[in-house]
Design a protein around this nucleic acid. Structure first.
Lengths: 201, 201
DNA sequence: GACGTAAATGAATCTCGGTTCTAGAACGTT
DNA sequence: AACGTTCTAGAACCGAGATTCATTTACGTC
């Protein structure tokens, strides 16, 4: 009965992704509309504001990134250290294969967005890490024999923060192979720490 | 003969630093003027534009950060590995002691600023890393016995990129001690790599 | 004490870009 | 074919904030 939609939400997000890939956080609604091949009004028909559009783009991208991690975790069931190191390596791999999405990932950080996100997406942002946090706890227990906050933090540093820190300067450009080597070395070293700072075993 | 200056460049930069510490890259000229206790016009009297003001603030902060590295390098002359690991640890230390300056450091990255910097500061940005690069090459040669581009890159990853990546999520908040442990572990691990990816020795 | 200079001052202007709003179009239904 | 609904369309609106500029101030010199 209604007029058929010419653009889907996903297409708008794709256009936004493409713009973000070029201009980073400086995207304008006019840019996105031009990329989409439509007027700005059509975008506002689906997204309440620029903030919401960018937040949704970020959320979609984070979910896509996390999907790779979940898939990975099922591959080597029973070898937690291997899963953890591979999770770390997933970061440079993902950024190399999807430079545009990598750029979108660096649009926000969860705690910051949680504070400033528009009403409609707040909840999605809040629950975004639930699944991945559960996985992290499970792997932490398997690796360390404990899932204390301090142990989980080490795992997070080794698999997420350090790897992302290493690729970040290369986001927007080709990620050289040495980053993967450094990521592996760094992850293994951090995973060999105890929260006290001593080496394990 | 002229009217005496009420504000110095440094005071304006201090006010800008203070604002950046609160609002990050979102500072407005009005914010800075309010913090300074003067009108916006006075700021434009010394800084041609907002871009220039922020660029100069960033440059001043980077120089301050680098000064610590230079001082450090003279301390343990003859023990390159110790200097390198300590250089890595300088990053979380600096960010913990100077949270406001840490925030200012994350305002730009050199290659990006180099492309977009206003005329007057372009040269300063371009030469900003000259000294530190020389130091890095010297220490790379001392540590690896070679200062090939690949070796220098490893040193850069170990002492600058990985450490900064580890603290970055904490910039704007207290930096926990575990970051220092992770930084040390990560730096040592990366410095034990050869460009081929193999372990040294 | 008038003059020249450099600085301060802050209201007015300009610009950019997000957002709104009214009109028109496309479709199924009755 | 008239209608209801949902979407496209894009020009107009509007606010935020950077920048400008005419004026005033404070000082040393002649």
């Amino acid at each position: 009965m209604p007029r058929p939609a010419k653009f889907t939400d996903e297409e708008v997000l794709d256009a936004a992704l493409s713009c973000v890939s070029d201009d980073g956080a400086g995207v304008t609604m006019a840019d996105v509309a031009a990329r989409l091949g439509g007027p700005v009004g059509s975008i506002y028909h689906r997204f309440a504001s620029r903030d919401e559009l960018l937040a949704r783009l970020w959320i979609r991208t984070v979910r896509d990134f996390q999907a790779g991690l979940f898939a990975l975790a099922e591959t080597y069931e029973g070898d937690p250290e291997r899963i953890l190191v591979d999770s770390a390596l997933h970061v440079p791999r993902y950024c190399r294969e999807h430079p545009d999405r990598a750029r979108a990932l660096s649009l926000f950080r969860q705690p910051v967005l949680l504070a400033s996100a528009p009403e409609g997406v707040r909840d999605d942002v809040a629950s975004l890490n639930d699944g991945i946090d559960r996985l992290a706890r499970r792997l932490t227990r398997a690796h360390y024999g404990s899932a204390s906050a301090a142990h989980v933090e080490l795992v997070l540093l080794a698999t997420r923060i350090a790897p992302y820190g290493l690729v970040r300067p290369y986001v927007g450009a080709p990620v050289p192979p040495v980053i993967d080597q450094a990521t592996r070395a760094s992850a293994e070293a951090i995973l060999s720490l105890e929260p006290s700072g001593r080496r394990r075993r």
